[in-house]
Amino acid sequence: MPENLTAPLVVAFPFTRSLGPVQSAFLTGLRERTVLGVRTRDGRVLVPPVEYDPVTAEEIRDLVEVGTTGTVTTWAWNPAPRHRQPLRTPFAWALVRLDGADTALLHALDAPHARAVRTGMRVRIRWAAHREGAITDIACFEPYDGTATATAGATPHGGAFADPVTTLTTPARLDYTYAPGRAQTRYLHALAGRRILGERCPSCRRVCVPPRGACPTCGVATAEHVEVGPRGTVTTFCVVNIKAKGLDIDVPYVYAHIALDGADLALHARIGGIPYDEVRMGMRVEPVWTDDSRHPDHYRPAPEPDAAYDTYKELL
């Protein structure tokens, strides 16, 4: 059994989030060191504010300003902060009910050690030096022994600010390790030796390429390895005229389905060595291997006549 292949897989995108009116007001407010909440019809003040009442589902737009000091309602010590969390040194995660609010906001609480944190302790917002209209405009909370800020209650607020923030860009990157599985590993190792391996189903006897370790139609494990190709027949194709981002292939090029000799379904590959507008269904092709790719770089016309439609029409 050859070594199982794995490879890093990064899923990263700077998501752009449109905020809607309430979240826009709240996040713009943070930029201006002002904390807004919403008042529900029954008088509760929700901070952070939401657009719809979590109990009645009513739309709520009644903005109020609350204090920047508050009380810890529960907390958890975080001895080993992870790199994208708010603080680099150990801190407490805390739910903080700001003065004037009826609900609590989650954020980091900067404290020297866990013994310095308790439920009920008073804290205040430490603002980030650079603020842009995001929850991270609050750098964290910090212990506070003074009195409540001026806005001890919740006071009405129009929610209007100059140059409001309407979208939020939230880059998110996740790192994965991709494992293609045993069947694919075997297939990929064989490719390194420039052989194309399929698997024959013990039940229907058909040969699947690339192999998956299971026959997709019979739902049984496949273990009999069969070398297929190298030549095959173009069953169908399209001519690609738009260059895809991050794809280093000059357009136009032909993307084809190729039924390799001995295989019972077509795999997908690029056709080269022939002008794109001369590629035909039924054309016989063979792989062209290069040193810099595990897969055949492309397939080129093989020196033999085209296959008759009837010989591959079942593979379309």
């Binding site: 981002k245 993307y255 269904m281």
Partner: peptide
């Protein structure tokens, strides 16, 4: 992107176009 797979296409159009050609044929 899927590791170990040859990047050949992006988007759904290229995936479905060969089937359309097959239909026409």
């Amino acid at each position: 992107p899927v590791p170990f797979q040859q990047p050949l296409l992006a988007g759904a159009g290229g995936f479905f176009a060969p089937h359309i050609r097959a239909y026409i044929r």
